[in-house]
Computed example of a mutant assay.
Amino acid sequence: MDVDTFWQDFKSRHPEIKTNHHDTYAMGSTDENATILAHLIAAGTKTATTSALDLYTADEPLPFVGEYNVILDGHDQPICVTQTKVVETIPFNQVSAEHAYHEGEDDRTLASWRREHRAFFQAAYRQEGRIFTEDIPCYCEVFVRVD
């Protein structure tokens, strides 16, 4: 199903939602990872995510509280809809164990969160010709699966 049809079907089941605004994206750095993460979200295991704030571009809006998101798998197929509930900027080295747990990945510990996100961010920064440091600003988002 294409995203527009998926979104319209979602709205028809939720007439209380008046907005047509939604973001659409897949998470992760590979198609396989995107599919795994999408299914963790659909199952309610993954209810948070983190991005590097200073890697957003000027034409890329930040997620905001109340925003709806169509989550895609690694084949660009819509899997579910989430709504952003909390956003906050926190230095990488101060992200909490609670946030790491809500990310729902690996063993859900802060140690594994830091290991995986450090590797991901180091690669992303290197690709941009920048250097990752432990105090980069992270944009932490908490969401709920709506449908």
Rank of each mutant, 00 (worst) to 15 (best):
M1I: 07
D2V: 06
V3C: 04
D4R: 12
T5I: 07
T5W: 02
T5R: 04
T5Y: 03
F6L: 08
W7Q: 07
D9S: 11
D9G: 10
K11R: 15
K11A: 08
K11T: 12
S12H: 12
S12M: 12
R13D: 06
R13G: 07
R13Y: 07
P15L: 04
E16F: 09
I17S: 06
I17F: 09
T19E: 13
N20E: 15
N20Q: 13
H21F: 13
H22R: 14
H22N: 13
D23F: 15
D23W: 15
T24D: 01
T24M: 01
T24P: 00
Y25L: 01
A26C: 15
A26F: 03
A26I: 05
G28V: 07
S29W: 05
S29Q: 06
T30E: 07
T30L: 04
T30M: 03
D31N: 09
D31F: 03
E32N: 02
E32M: 01
E32L: 01
E32F: 01
A34V: 01
T35D: 02
T35E: 02
I36C: 05
I36P: 03
I36N: 08
L37C: 13
A38I: 03
H39Q: 11
H39F: 07
H39I: 09
H39E: 12
I41W: 00
I41D: 00
A42Q: 05
A42M: 03
A43L: 10
G44K: 12
G44Q: 09
G44C: 09
T45W: 03
K46Y: 11
K46N: 07
T47F: 01
A48S: 10
A48N: 05
T49A: 10
T49Y: 00
T50F: 08
T50V: 14
T50R: 08
S51T: 13
A52Y: 04
A52I: 08
D54S: 03
L55E: 08
Y56A: 09
T57Q: 12
A58M: 05
D59A: 14
D59R: 13
P61S: 03
L62H: 14
G66W: 01
E67H: 07
N69R: 02
N69V: 11
N69W: 00
V70W: 00
I71A: 02
I71P: 00
L72R: 00
L72A: 00
D73I: 08
G74D: 01
H75I: 04
H75S: 13
D76R: 13
D76V: 08
D76N: 14
Q77G: 06
